[in-house]
Design a protein around this nucleic acid. Structure first.
Ligand SMILES: Cc1cc2nc3c(=O)[nH]c(=O)nc-3n(C[C@H](O)[C@H](O)[C@H](O)COP(=O)(O)OP(=O)(O)OC[C@H]3O[C@@H](n4cnc5c(N)ncnc54)[C@H](O)[C@@H]3O)c2cc1C
Length: 471
DNA sequence: TGCGACTTTCA
DNA sequence: GAAAGTCGC
């Protein structure tokens, strides 16, 4: 009899509770990953993200091989196909337990429930661990026993919970070498072919951990000061690795704690501010796990669900292509389109512009981001969009509307970020670049602003006021 | 991590 | 009449 570890969003060998549990049994251990291409397409996963996953799987297979654990990679259409593949594997490999890290989207929870029930009829237990977050959804609750809906109290409870958690990361387990040859499914050559190239993002665990180490040692102290300036390389850019579980919150936190024991809990310091961002990620994940409306595409605040958003395909396309005539928005959208990643400050500006100034449905923005981001993750992406749209819990108040040009002047004062991503504006001065004069726009062939910022802001606030009063 | 309308304070 | 403060969307 053997154990099967099903990898999903925890593509690592270090600090992996499933692997450790399976290996402690003393039985043979097999890893598996199921590629569900149709499902990915239905959920708008971006091509660059798929490429990253496929590259990462080759690397993970090597890392697992160092532990003498084979990684079987199979392809099936969608979540329904997963059950069949798992049953096949259980039969072929004489599996007596399937082990996995919990996933929190509604469809993923339903899939896992189905599989759990089906395997149970064959007396194969399915055991779920917490692998994506340090503090499991529901582990901390408000005094009334409710899930937290507000970030600050959640983060306090989260930190208070740390004393109960072992932070020193689990080592990668080592199995005895196995001689028996098994069918590992898709070969590395096939993975490389499907990936269609090499991801620009680090794919090995070693590269990612080096990057994490370097960030914590050299950059996190200045994080608080510089994180909002998109032309500064001040943020960790670890979201891609975190979204796929190449390392855990505990691994990052352990480093922070070791390096900055006096600071890491204080959000006013660089390390403490960065930890807060890791907690934001866990905050949104626990919301996703405990409120089905997020997976169902409903606004979190019910009083905002009746809002009639504009239907304007031309404006949506202009926004998507980075041709809105608002330089900072266009720079952000072009960064997203080109590299599948956007700086957080600019994500907020682009999202706010779509919802508040263009009055387009935040779900259109959410969908488009998901179709381009490599770090795309339902919990954080939905969280970010509902924050921006003021439809979320603990969101930006509807009357606090960003002015993208003031944001641009404040956070990209020299215009370096804009110059880098918007070619037409590369030669403009800092005085012109945030909102060029008509004549300058014509000269460099840059569009006029798609909307009047002042007027659209006023209208958005009025519409929200009318909507929320109605109840 | 908002901003305009309005009031108060000071010269 | 400028600057600083307060209010409400
Ligand atoms: C509209 C919108 C959509 C977003 N979509 C996603 C998404 O699909 N996936 C995603 O991982 N993040 C998303 N974010 C959050 C944030 O923009 C990115 O996590 C961040 O820009 C990643 O860069 P970094 O790794 O350099 O972050 P750092 O500043 O170094 O932060 C460290 C880590 O903390 C987490 N984090 C940071 N900020 C947030 C946040 N606001 N919410 C949740 N987690 C956070 C990320 O995992 C990040 O890697 C979105 C934000 C907005 C406003």
């Amino acid at each position: 009899m053997a154990k099967l570890v099903w990898f999903r969003h925890d593509l690592r060998t270090l600090d992996n509770p499933m692997l450790n549990y399976a290996c402690r049994s003393g039985q043979p251990v097999y890893g598996c990953y199921l590629i569900t291409a149709q499902q990915w397409q239905r959920q708008n996963h971006s091509p660059l993200r798929n490429q990253y996953v496929l590259n990462r799987l080759s690397a993970l297979r090597q890392e697992l091989a160092d532990c003498h654990i084979p990684l079987i990679i199979k392809s099936c259409d969608d979540y329904d196909g997963c059950l069949y593949e798992l049953e096949q594997l259980c039969m072929q490999l004489a599996i007596d337990e399937v082990v996995m890290g919990a996933e929190y989207g509604l469809w993923e929870r339903q899939r896992d429930e189905k599989i759990h029930a089906a395997l149970a009829t064959q007396s194969i237990p399915m055991t779920r661990f917490t692998s994506q977050v340090l503090v499991a959804p529901g582990e901390v609750t408000t005094a009334q026993g409710q899930p937290y809906r507000v970030f600050t109290p959640f983060s306090k409870a989260w930190k208070a919970q740390l004393s109960l958690h072992e932070l020193s990361p689990l080592a990668a387990p080592k199995q005895h070498p196995q001689n028996t040859k098994i069918d590992e499914g898709l070969s590395d050559a096939q993975l490389t072919r499907f990936a269609g190239g090499e991801s620009c993002w680090p794919v090995t665990q070693e590269q990612v951990l080096n990057h994490l180490n370097l960030f914590v040692k050299q950059k996190v102290s200045h994080y608080q000061q510089w994180r909002d300036f998109p032309s500064e390389p001040a943020t960790s850019r670890l979201s891609v690795a975190l979204a796929h579980g190449v390392f855990s919150t505990a691994q990052a936190l352990h480093l922070l704690q070791q390096s900055y024991p006096e600071q890491y809990l204080d959000p006013k310091t660089g390390p403490g501010c960065w930890l807060n961002e890791l907690i934001w990620r866990e905050f949104y994940i626990q919301l996703l796990a405990q409120f089905d409306t997020i997976s169902q595409g409903l606004a979190f605040k019910s009083e905002t669900r009746a809002i009639q958003w504009e239907q304007n395909p031309a404006a949506l396309t202009a926004w998507q292509q980075g041709k809105t005539g608002i330089p900072i928005v266009d720079a952000g959208m072009r960064q997203l389109n080109e590299i599948g990643w956007m700086h957080n400050r600019v994500r907020m500006i682009c999202a706010s512009f779509l919802c508040k100034n263009l009055w387009l449905d935040w779900r259109e923005g959410e969908k488009y981001f998901m179709s381009k981001l490599i770090d795309g993750h339902l919990a954080s992406n939905n969280g970010g969009w509902q924050w921006s749209a003021s439809t979320g819990t603990d969101a930006a108040p509807y009357f606090r509307v960003f002015n993208p040009i003031s944001q641009s002047q404040k956070f990209d004062p020299q215009g370096d970020y804009i110059r880098h991503w918007v070619n037409e504006l590369a030669s403009l001065s800092a005085a012109q670049i945030h909102d060029p004069d008509n004549t300058v726009r014509q000269k460099v062939n840059y569009p006029q602003p798609l909307v009047d910022l002042k007027q659209s802001r006023k209208q958005a606030i009025a519409r929200f006021a009318a909507q929320t009063k109605r109840d």
